[in-house]
Simulated assay, not measured.
Amino acid sequence: MSCPNCKCNKSKETKIDPEEYEELKEYLQDEIHEYKVIDYINEQNEHSTYVEVEFEDYVIELENLDTNNLNLDIIIDTIIKNNIK
Rank of each mutant, 00 (worst) to 15 (best):
Cys6His: 06
Lys15Tyr: 15
Thr78Pro: 01
Tyr50Arg: 14
Tyr35Ile: 01
Glu13Thr: 14
Thr14Tyr: 08
Val53Met: 03
Ile16Ala: 00
His33Pro: 03
Glu63Phe: 11
Asn64Ile: 07
Thr49Asp: 11
Asn45Tyr: 11
Glu54Met: 07
Glu20Phe: 08
Glu63Gln: 10
Thr14His: 10
Phe55Glu: 03
Lys12Leu: 00
Thr67Lys: 07
Ile84Val: 01
Lys25Val: 00
Pro4Ser: 12
Leu24Phe: 09
Glu46Val: 05
Asp77Gln: 13
Cys6Asn: 11
Tyr40Ser: 11
Asn69Gln: 09
Glu54Ala: 05
Glu56Asn: 08
Glu20Asn: 02
Leu70Gly: 01
Ile60Phe: 05
Lys10Cys: 06
His33Met: 12
Tyr58Val: 15
Asn9Leu: 14
Asn9Cys: 14
His33Ile: 11
Ser2His: 06
Thr78Trp: 02
Glu26Cys: 13
Met1Val: 03
Asp30Lys: 14
Glu61Phe: 14
Val51Ala: 06
Ser48His: 06
Val37Asn: 01
Ser2Ile: 14
Gln29Met: 05
Val53Glu: 04
Glu56Ser: 13
Tyr40Val: 12
Ile38Phe: 10
Lys15Pro: 08
Asn9Glu: 12
Val59Leu: 00
Cys3Arg: 15
Glu22Thr: 05
Asn69Cys: 07
Leu28Gly: 01
Ile75Val: 07
His33Gly: 09
Lys36Ile: 03
Glu54Gly: 01
Ile79Val: 01
Leu70Thr: 05
Glu52Tyr: 01
Asn71Gln: 11
Asn69Arg: 13
Asn64Glu: 09
Asn83Gln: 15
Lys85Ile: 06
Cys8Gln: 15
Asp77Asn: 15
His47Cys: 11
Ile76Trp: 00
Leu62Cys: 08
Tyr27His: 10
Val51Glu: 04
Lys81Ala: 09
Val37Trp: 01
Asp17Ala: 08
Pro18Phe: 06
Ile76Ala: 04
Thr14Pro: 00
Ser2Trp: 07
Ile80Glu: 03
Lys10Asp: 10
Tyr27Ser: 14
Ile60Asn: 00
Asp57His: 15
Lys25Ile: 00
Glu20Val: 10
Lys85Trp: 08
